[in-house]
Amino acid sequence: MTAETMHRPSTREFENLQALQNHVGEELACSDWMTVDQAGIDLFAAATGDHQWIHVDTVRAASGPFRGDIARGLLTLSLIPMLMAQAITIHNY
């Protein structure tokens, strides 16, 4: 077993939405880890036209409230479909 397969979560499968709904409130699964690096943050800024300094100016952000640049919440939200597809499969919805 390699380090990659050792930490790779398995996908949970559900026959339909009702089967998924039966697990409301439970932790179902998790996706693979994903590194959000500055290149990805910069690409997201270019795609959205949001070039706020706290996200894209690493020098200025170093003296900001978080002592470094941060990813946008919207970037995090936009990753949900990809991460969810790694974590669960719903067959008949």
Rank of each mutant, 00 (worst) to 15 (best):
I41P: 02
P65Y: 00
L77N: 11
M34A: 15
G64E: 08
T11C: 13
L43Q: 15
H51W: 13
W53C: 05
L20T: 01
P9Q: 13
E26F: 07
T89Q: 11
T89Y: 08
L43Y: 00
L43T: 10
A46D: 12
M1F: 10
A61N: 04
T76Q: 05
G40Y: 01
L75K: 02
I80L: 14
A85H: 13
A39W: 00
H51A: 11
A39V: 09
V56P: 03
W53T: 04
S10H: 08
A47Q: 08
E15Y: 01
L83Y: 03
G40V: 02
H91R: 14
G49E: 00
A29W: 10
T5A: 11
T76D: 01
C30L: 01
M6D: 11
Q52M: 10
G25T: 06
T48E: 03
Y93T: 13
P81V: 09
L43A: 14
A3Q: 15
L77I: 08
P9W: 09
E13L: 04
L79D: 05
L79G: 02
E4T: 08
G64L: 04
R12K: 11
N22Q: 12
V59L: 12
E13G: 06
A29K: 05
M6K: 13
R60A: 11
G68V: 05
D69L: 03
V56Y: 02
P9A: 08
P81M: 01
P81C: 00
T11H: 06
F44E: 00
E26H: 14
T2A: 07
T11M: 14
S63F: 09
E27Y: 15
D32I: 11
V59T: 14
L77R: 12
R67K: 12
Y93W: 14
R12D: 05
M84R: 15
W53S: 04
H91P: 03
H91M: 01
L74V: 15
T58K: 13
N22K: 09
A3G: 08
G73I: 03
A46V: 01
L43P: 01
Q52E: 09
M84S: 15
M34L: 15
H23L: 02
L74E: 14
A87D: 04
L20E: 00
F14T: 03
D37P: 07
L79Q: 12
R8L: 13
G25L: 12
A45C: 00
T11D: 01
L79N: 03
T89N: 14
E27K: 11
T2M: 08
M34N: 09
V24W: 04
I88H: 00
H91C: 01
A29P: 06
D69T: 07
Q86H: 00
F44R: 02
A29T: 05
F14A: 15
N22V: 04
D57K: 08
A3F: 12
A29L: 06
Q38N: 10
V59D: 15
M82V: 13
A39L: 07
